[in-house]
Design a binder for these strands. Structure first.
Length: 263
DNA sequence: CTATTTGTTTATCC
DNA sequence: AGGATAAACAAATA
């Protein structure tokens, strides 16, 4: 599920436990979610450390433990963070549990496209490009990103995490719909002004999604494409448009757009 | 039984 | 060689 705003939503679930001590940590050592990690570092290696802080970068989340130790968490398609009672018994898809005095923190991921780890002792933000909700993500960043992918369809560029960190399938469609650009359109034949428009809509979709979803997973407004994209017979929510939405695979992902608004 | 899924990595093909 | 596309990963759901 998670894109930028949903990842931030899950991060906030664990935020109340900043400053708390990890009594123990455990997990299923063979679980695919640990494929990049040193399992011992994330279990026995955490016992006695304090959960100091956490932050998001696009779709990635980082947990900071005393040391410091930075642990990367990616929620993949179906990952989520939960808070359970002390003594909680992990279920089938609960791959990683942090035991605190007041709660059990659980990483759950049925499909296991997500990952926990690796851990590092240096701040990973130093090596990452600015995410789409970062003030350093500018119209110039977008222009540079587009210049690197001249032959690609717009949808593919928006999904590239090295260029638009945090944008996923539904946000990409929302941005292109608002910018009135067809998702299959090649970067090379964009009209002048398109880069600026893409930057503006990317920034605005990220801001509004965070505002609505991050605190309590609120519903997006009905005039967003998101609320219509999966409905059979879905109609473009732009005022007075009423055009049936199109759905096809573009850049390998199911894509929804308005054939009349987007060219 | 088949097709679908808001993600990423790897292999393959121009 | 670089870049785009398809397959693979795994499980639930319709």
């Amino acid at each position: 599920m998670p894109e930028l705003a949903e990842v931030e939503y899950y991060r906030r679930r664990w935020q109340p436990f900043h400053g708390k001590k990890i009594l123990a940590a455990d997990g299923h050592p063979r679980a695919r979610v640990f494929r990049d990690a040193d399992f011992a570092t994330l279990t026995t290696g955490l016992a006695g450390r304090v959960f100091r802080d956490s932050f998001c970068h696009g779709k990635q989340m980082f947990l900071v433990f005393s040391g410091p130790l930075f642990v990367r968490v990616h929620l993949g398609m179906t990952g989520e963070l939960l808070v359970e009672k002390p003594g909680y018994e992990p279920g089938k898809h609960d791959h990683w549990t942090l035991r605190l005095k007041s709660a059990t923190l659980v990483f759950r991921d049925p499909r296991m496209f997500g990952r926990v780890g690796p851990a590092s002792t240096t701040d990973p933000r130093l090596d990452l490009p600015p995410a789409v909700d970062d003030p350093r993500f500018t119209a110039e960043s977008v222009a540079r990103a587009l210049a690197r992918r001249r032959a690609a369809p717009l949808k593919a560029v928006l999904l590239d995490q090295s260029l638009f960190p945090g944008i996923g399938n539904w946000m990409a469609d929302e941005i292109l719909w608002r910018a009135r650009l067809h998702p299959a359109r090649r970067v090379a034949d964009l009209p002048p002004g398109a880069p600026k428009r893409l930057w503006q809509e990317t920034t605005e979709v990220a801001r509004a999604a965070l505002e609505t979803i991050a605190p309590d997973w609120g519903d997006l407004p009905d005039d967003w494409l998101m609320n219509h994209r999966w409905k059979d017979g879905g109609i473009c929510p732009r005022p007075r448009c009423h055009t049936p939405l199109a759905r096809e695979t573009i850049a390998g992902r199911t894509t929804c757009w308005c054939p009349r608004c987007q060219v």
